[in-house]
């Protein structure tokens, strides 16, 4: 037993959870206005915005990671700004992979929320307006409580998708112990060094964990 766990280090596992947690929280705040806008506003370039948000779904993570690497690097727009503001770089840092994850998982939060917003009966919203309630009050008291399930779906998908992330993190963060070496990279490292036992343990944990979370989503849906 001790032999099996000899090379197992839970740091990378907790790092993945930490990354997934912050990504989900950030995306929740970012996606509410974006989804609201996509669901209800009528404007000319909506299709462009929708296509842009969905890009991470189809692009190879390496392509996305490559552009993010350029964007977040010392000479990139965000990277240089960040360095001037906070005095440290974004590349190969937790903050860097967090920003990358937010971009990468954006459609996983925006899509369920937009679908949820669109599913709300329009007359509920209008009834709230005729009762003198502002758009903001209507959003938080009427719309959001009635699409709880879309929120749960968005949160779970984002979380689990971030936990399972590999390519983008590797491109932007590399493999720095405790900083950017998430569980998927640890598995890759273990296999690379032919330590199949450790790879088994990590993979097994991730498999069971992901399955349990999805089960949690599907069970009440029965």
């Amino acid at each position: 037993m001790e032999k099996i766990f000899s090379n197992v280090d839970f740091t990378s596992f907790f790092l993945s959870l930490k990354l997934a947690f912050f990504t989900t929280i950030l995306l929740l705040f970012i996606s509410i206005p974006i989804s609201y806008f996509l669901a209800y506003a009528k404007f000319r370039f909506k299709a462009f915005l929708e296509a842009f948000i969905s890009l991470p779904l189809v692009l190879p993570p390496t392509v996305l990671g490559f552009y993010l690497l350029i964007f977040l690097s010392k000479n990139g727009i965000l990277g240089s700004l960040w360095e001037r503001l906070f005095g440290n770089p974004l590349i190969f840092r937790f903050e860097g992979i967090l920003i990358a994850s937010v971009v990468f998982s954006l459609p996983f939060m925006v899509h369920p929320l937009t679908a949820g917003f669109r599913s709300v009966n329009k007359s509920l919203i209008e009834a709230s307006y005729t009762l003198g309630k502002s758009k903001l009050t209507t959003l938080f008291k009427i719309i959001i409580p009635n699409i709880k399930y879309s929120f749960i779906t968005g949160i779970v998908l984002t979380f689990i998708h971030t936990v399972g992330e590999f390519g983008v993190v590797l491109m932007v963060g590399g493999s720095i112990e405790g900083e950017t070496k998430v569980i998927s990279i640890s598995i890759y490292d273990a296999v690379e060094s032919l330590d199949y036992t450790t790879a088994h343990v990590y993979s097994g944990i991730l498999l069971i964990f992901s399955f349990l979370i999805l089960l949690f989503v599907y069970l009440p849906n029965k």
């Binding site: 009966n121 007359s123 509920l124 209008e126 009834a127 307006y129 005729t130 003198g132 009427i142 009635n146």
Partner: peptide
Amino acid sequence: PQKRNVGFVFQNYALF
């Protein structure tokens, strides 16, 4: 609509 103080009963009731 918020400023008109009109009571509106919708065909589908629109209860929350």
